[in-house]
Every structure is written in C-alpha cells, then in structure tokens.
C-alpha cells in the first residue's frame, strides 16, 4: 500500500483548482516556446490582479452589481476548475474582473460600517502574499506531501462547514460561532486566514514545478487563476476577521 494512500484517495492539493488530473503526458515533447515559464505565470497573475482592481473600481462605484458579479464569478470559477484547465486563458480574465466587481462592492459595505477597513485588508493580503512568497523562494517554508494533505483536509473541512451553515441559514438557523465576534469566532477566523494563506504556498509550488517540468503554456493561466482564487478567498477572510475585531 502506498505511503500516501490518503492523498491518493482524497486528492493532491488544498486548492480545489489543483485537485483535477492534468494531462501532463508527454511534456517533454512540447516545443520550448510552448512550455510554461515562471515569468509567464507571474505576468499572467499580474494581468488578472489588474483586471480584478479594475473590476473593484467599478464595484466600488456601483455596489448594486455586487451580487450578480459574485454569482457570475463563482460560476466562472467552477467552469474553469471542472470544465477544462486548457480553457483557463479565456475564463480566468472574466473571473478576475467579475470577482473584482464583487470585492469592490463588499469593501464599500465594510467601509460604510468600519471606515479604513478596506485599506487594512488590502495591505494585510498583499503583506501576507509578499512574505509567504519570500519564505517560499528562500526555502524557509518547504511544502511536502503531508503539508498538502493537511492543507487539503483543512480547506475541505472549512468548505463543508460554510456549506452546512449556508444551507442551515435557509431554515432560519446556522452555525453561530463562525460568524460571532466572540473569542471563538475570532479564533476560527484566524484559523481560516492561516489556511487560506498556506494555500498560497501550494500555488507557488505548483507554478514553480510546472515551469520546471515544462508543462503546456496554458497552465500559466491555470496557475495564475489558482493564485487569484486563493487571494480572493484570503482577502474576504481577512475582511471578515477585521470586521469581527472592530465590532468588539
């Protein structure tokens, strides 16, 4: 029996975008200019981030678009993950733009209640991104198979908890502590922020190894998309944590 049989059963990554099987067979046969590169993946991430910021500007000025943009963005993320990673180049830019509009609207809502919270959340998100990128590049954080299993389990657990809470909300109840501003609620938010942040390390590792192995060029878009999904999640969780702290 395989040493990591649990990984084989449950999947390979914490990020849902990486739980798919990729058609990597014959990566060595791909022409050099058709291979994934680190520069390409970083450039595409910057393109997606710029689109997200442009969308956020629209959402900031037109908060009524928040819900429709959130729904379209979520649908696009599922299409990219479950349909085909090869099409990520055509869906990821729209995903980033629509999620940007939604995040802009959410930030306006948060700013109205707690002035200055948006800047704090953006600063923290990019601070975490930069520090984890530094830690990964220098080898301070070394992702292993066990690390991936841990992050995957925790991410799935959080996802399931949110899903149950969402379904329960239709029946007038819910899992109170995850939304409360008590010590337990803040502790839970801190844990979720930690898991979301550690998902970034898996994204970096996927991009780094993808470039090293010479995966097909379209995987640059997929790697950038995965990083965007994690960053959007991280931003929302940081915003939730800050709102809980400020409401005390």
């Amino acid at each position: 029996m395989s040493k990591h049989s649990a990984l084989n059963t449950f999947g390979r990554s914490g990020n849902p975008a990486f739980t798919r099987n990729f058609n990597l067979a014959g990566a060595g046969d791909i022409a050099l200019e058709e291979r994934m590169t680190l520069d390409g993946a970083v450039n595409k991430t910057v393109i997606l981030l710029s689109l997200c910021f442009a969308g956020a500007f629209i959402g900031w000025n037109t908060p009524a678009l928040t819900m429709p943009a959130l729904i379209v963005g979520t649908v696009l993320s599922f299409v990219t993950i479950f349909r085909s990673p090869t099409k990520a180049g055509s869906t990821a830019p729209f995903y980033a733009a629509f999620q940007g509009v939604a995040l802009g609207g959410i930030t306006v809502f948060a700013e109205a209640q707690y002035p200055g919270i948006g800047i704090q959340a953006i600063g923290l998100t990019f601070g975490i991104l930069a520090s984890l990128l530094f830690c990964y590049k220098t080898g301070i954080i070394k992702p292993t198979e066990n690390f991936r299993l841990m992050i995957f389990s925790a991410t799935m657990g959080i996802g399931l908890l949110y899903l149950v809470s969402f379904v329960m909300s239709f029946f007038g109840s819910g899992i109170g502590f995850i939304h409360s501003n008590g010590l337990f609620g803040i502790g839970f938010s801190l844990f979720v922020v930690g898991i979301a942040a550690l998902n970034l390390v898996l994204d970096f590792d996927f991009i780094e190894e993808g470039a090293e192995q010479g995966l097909p060029k379209h995987m640059e878009w997929y790697g950038a998309f995965s990083l965007m999904v994690t960053l959007v999640w991280l931003y929302i969780e940081i915003l939730r944590l800050l709102m809980k702290l400020r409401s005390r």
């Binding site: 680190l38 520069d39 993946a41 970083v42 450039n43 991430t45 910057v46 981030l49 990019f126 991104l129 930069a130 990128l133 530094f134 990964y136 590049k137 220098t138 080898g139 070394k142 970096f204 780094e208």
Partner: peptide
C-alpha cells in the same frame, strides 16, 4: 510581486 515572483526559488 512582479519582481519577487520572477526570482527562481532557492536550491534549498
């Protein structure tokens, strides 16, 4: 991000 991201990870 643009500057730090393009640096290749260490041998370690």
């Amino acid at each position: 991000f643009l500057k730090l991201g393009k640096i290749k990870a260490s041998k370690k």
